[in-house]
Amino acid sequence: MSGDSPRHVSGSNEETELVRRIAARDEEAFRDAIARHATLMHRIAYRMMGNAHDADDITQEAMLRLWDHAPRLIEKGRAAGLKLAPWLKRVTVNLAIDRLRVAKRLSANADIPEQVDHEPLADAAIERREEGQAARALISRLPERQRAAIVLTYYEELPNAEAADAMDMNIKAFESLLFRARAALRRGFENEPGRVEGGAS
C-alpha cells in the first residue's frame, strides 16, 4: 500500500548529519528532511484523521517538532546512531491520536464528515470516491490506537516491531492491540448495511 514511500533511504550517519544541520538552523537541511519524510507522515496522518486539513496540520506540526527538538535528538542519538523516520512516525501517530481524542471529546457522536468534492463528477471519480469513503468509514469507526495500528501495519506495511516502536509500545501489547483492531475492523465490515454475511476476508 505504501508505494509512494520515500525511495531515498539514508544511513543513520547521514540522518545524524542532517539533524545536526537542522539543529544548527540550516534551512536547506530542514527542506531536505521535509522532502524525505513528509509524504510518509502525511499518509499516516491522513488515514488516521480521514481529512486532508488535519493531515496537513499534523504533518506540519511534526516537522516543526523536528525543528524544535533537533538539538536534543542529536544529544540522544549520538551514541547509537540517529534514525529519523521512526521518531517522526511516533510523533505523527501521537499527534494524530491526541487530535482524535480532542475531536471525540468535542463531538462524541459526530458523523463522519463528508469530504468536499472539488473534482468533476466523472463516473470513475465518483466510484473511486465512494470506495475511499467506505474505507475511511471503516477505519474511522475504530478507537484511535486501533486505528493507528491498522494504518501502520496494513497501509504502511510496517513489521509489528516497528509499528510497536512508532506507538511506543512493547511488541506483546501491540500485537494484542492489533488483534483487537483487526477483529473490530472485520466486525465493522461484516456489519455494513447490505453486506452478505461471511463476505469479509
Binding site: 493531515a55 475511499g132 467506505a134 474505507a135 497501509y155 475492523l185 472485520r186 469479509a200 476476508s201
Partner: peptide, 13 residues
C-alpha cells in the same frame, strides 16, 4: 479478500 479490497480504496491526496 473482500476486506482488503474495501480498505485498499483509501487513497491519500
Amino acid at each position: 479478500g473482500a476486506l482488503d479490497k474495501a480498505l485498499s480504496g483509501y487513497h491519500v491526496p
